[in-house]
Simulated scan of single mutants.
Amino acid sequence: MSSSDIFFGEVLGTAVLILLGCGVVAGVVLKKSKAFEAGWVAITLGWGIGVLAGVYVSTQLSGAHLNPAVTLGIAIDSGKWGDVPVQIAGELVGAMLGAFLVWLAYYGHFLAHLGDREITAGARVPGPKAFDEPSATEERRPARRAEPGPVLGIFSTAPEIRNTVQNLATEVIGTAVLVLLVLGIGLNEGLAVSGTGGLMVALVVVGIGLSLGGPTGYAINPARDLGPRIVHALLPLPNKGGSDWSYSWIPVVGPLAGAALAGGIHNLLF
């Protein structure tokens, strides 16, 4: 595989993954969607199918890592690091592209949702005195736009309970399970040749979501969280709120640590 094949393969596969994954969340979250309030099971199934589709459209080009954590785990286990920068760059670009396509597909729904009275009533909208000096009360109260936004969960993850140690541990554990499976599949050439390996990974992603996704929304993929979070920060969405950058390091560091742990364990045992 050439570097260009690897890069564009990872862009394509990760974009499809994020389009379908963030897309199912948009369908469940946005009020005017036919899938509104379909629930967590629908979200986990959507992400699993996103993984399956992303793998099948890109595996012949790049090997379909679609995840810097998977890329890191494989590199640690195999000792092959040459393509890692190209793979991670493709994954991040693909994640951003997929998130942008979700915004495009649900454009009118985003506007309708963010224009809802429940959203606008809590937003700080500039009025006649927008450029006056803020009062002492306003100075003490942080602007709502700095808080996690009402549609941020469509793009990136957030914990239900903010506990740094627990949130980090959840991402480490979930990603270690994923990477151990990927590395285990690599030991069985028949799974890779038949294409069954991609299906197994997709099913495990659904399982991780059902079993371990409750605390943090299970990023288990640094590009999956960081790329869409950047897109959320850049998109011209009214009343979108903040992008929660104070939490953003956990769904990056946690999956990478979990991948390193899984890669080391697999290399030691096999």
Score class of each variant (00 low, 15 high):
residue 105 A to Q: 04
residue 163 N to Y: 09
residue 73 G to P: 02
residue 153 G to K: 13
residue 208 I to T: 01
residue 249 W to R: 00
residue 269 L to P: 00
residue 51 V to Q: 02
residue 47 W to M: 03
residue 5 D to W: 07
residue 80 K to N: 09
residue 4 S to M: 11
residue 26 A to P: 13
residue 147 E to F: 15
residue 153 G to S: 15
residue 107 Y to F: 14
residue 151 V to H: 13
residue 174 G to C: 09
residue 49 I to D: 04
residue 6 I to F: 02
residue 124 R to P: 00
residue 50 G to D: 10
residue 135 S to M: 05
residue 127 G to Q: 15
residue 265 I to P: 04
residue 50 G to C: 08
residue 51 V to N: 04
residue 236 P to G: 12
residue 21 G to N: 11
residue 173 I to W: 11
residue 170 T to S: 14
residue 262 A to Y: 01
residue 129 K to C: 03
residue 71 T to M: 02
residue 255 P to T: 09
residue 10 E to S: 11
residue 54 G to P: 11
residue 159 P to T: 13
residue 245 W to A: 06
residue 234 L to H: 06
residue 166 Q to V: 13
residue 258 G to S: 06
residue 98 G to C: 10
residue 45 L to G: 12
residue 109 H to T: 12
residue 217 G to C: 09
residue 49 I to L: 15
residue 24 V to M: 07
residue 5 D to L: 12
residue 163 N to D: 15
residue 208 I to V: 14
residue 34 K to I: 06
residue 181 L to R: 00
residue 130 A to Q: 11
residue 220 I to W: 01
residue 194 S to F: 03
residue 132 D to P: 00
residue 61 L to W: 13
residue 266 H to K: 04
residue 81 W to G: 01
residue 117 R to M: 08
residue 67 N to W: 09
residue 7 F to H: 06
residue 161 I to Q: 10
residue 216 T to L: 11
residue 227 G to C: 06
